[in-house]
């Protein structure tokens, strides 16, 4: 596994974990996340990183 694969994997893991945590926080406390962050962009970048990981495999 190259360094770029490791970084890509870590980005994907970081974004995915963060997305999960933020969605849980938003579902428990509506407005606490969406008032400040647009999770759409987060989701798109996470999806792109996942696609790139699959493509590299």
């Amino acid at each position: 596994m190259t360094m770029s694969d490791v970084i890509l994997k870590e980005i994907n893991l970081a974004l995915g974990s963060a997305l999960l945590v933020l969605l849980v926080l938003e579902s428990i406390w509506p407005g606490s996340v969406l008032a400040y962050l647009n999770l759409n962009y987060w989701l798109i970048i996470w999806l792109i990183s996942a696609i790139l990981r699959l493509w590299k495999k």
Binding site: A14, V21, S32, V33
Partner: peptide, 12 residues
């Protein structure tokens, strides 16, 4: 991530 969550909780 932890800092972000704490900041969001502080704002809320």
């Amino acid at each position: 991530l932890a800092a972000l969550v704490l900041w969001l909780l502080w704002q809320a």
